[in-house]
C-alpha cells in the first residue's frame, strides 16, 4: 500500500469494446440454455450429467470472463478467484476418491432396506412412507 506505482494501468482496455460484446455473450448464454434444456431431457444415461455440467461450465466461463470482466482484471484478482475454484474441485475430488474406493458395506445402498419390517422407526420419519394409507 505504500507503493502507489504498483497499481495496474487505469483500465485502459475496458474502453476497447462496446455494448455489442455484452449482447453477443447474452445470445450465447441463451443458446446454451436452450441446448441444455433440450439435451437435459434426453435419456442418454451416463452422458447427461457430464454434458449438463460442461454446458454450465461454458456458460459460467462466459459470465466470469466478459460480464465480470475477468479478462481485464489484474492478475491478483484472477488468482484469488481461480484458486477458490481450484480448492472447490479439490474438495470434490477428495470426497469422490473416498466414495469410489469404499467398502460396499459402508454405503447406504448396502444398508438394510428401509421397508423391512424389522425397522422400528415410524415410516413417516424415513421419507419413504411405505404405508401411505395409514394417514
Amino acid at each position: 500500500m505504500a507503493n502507489p506505482t504498483n497499481n495496474e494501468a487505469p483500465h485502459a482496455a475496458e474502453h476497447a469494446h462496446g455494448v455489442g460484446r455484452y449482447f453477443a455473450v447474452w445470445i450465447a448464454l441463451m443458446a446454451f440454455t436452450v441446448i441444455t434444456v433440450i439435451t437435459g431431457h434426453q435419456e442418454w444415461g451416463s452422458v447427461n450429467l457430464p454434458l449438463a455440467v460442461s454446458i454450465a461450465t461454458i456458460k459460467a466461463t462466459l459470465v466470469v470472463l466478459f460480464f465480470m470482466h475477468m479478462t481485464e482484471a489484474p492478475a491478483a484478482n484472477r488468482i484469488v478467484f481461480v484458486v477458490s475454484i481450484f480448492f472447490a474441485i479439490l474438495l470434490i475430488i477428495g470426497v469422490f476418491g473416498d466414495l469410489w474406493t469404499r467398502n460396499e458395506m459402508t454405503l447406504p445402498s448396502a444398508a438394510p432396506s428401509t421397508e423391512g419390517p424389522e425397522i422400528s422407526v415410524p415410516s413417516e420419519r424415513l421419507g419413504a412412507p411405505s404405508v401411505p394409507d395409514s394417514e
Binding site: M1, P4, N77, V80, F81, V83, S84
Partner: peptide, 24 residues
C-alpha cells in the same frame, strides 16, 4: 490510499476475495 487507482484496485481485490468465499 495514495491514489484513486490504488484504492480501486484494493476494493476490487477485496470483492474477488469475497466472491471466492461464496464459491466455496
Amino acid at each position: 490510499f495514495e491514489t484513486q487507482n490504488q484504492q480501486d484496485g484494493a476494493v476490487r481485490l477485496g470483492m474477488w476475495l469475497f466472491l471466492g468465499t461464496e464459491v466455496l
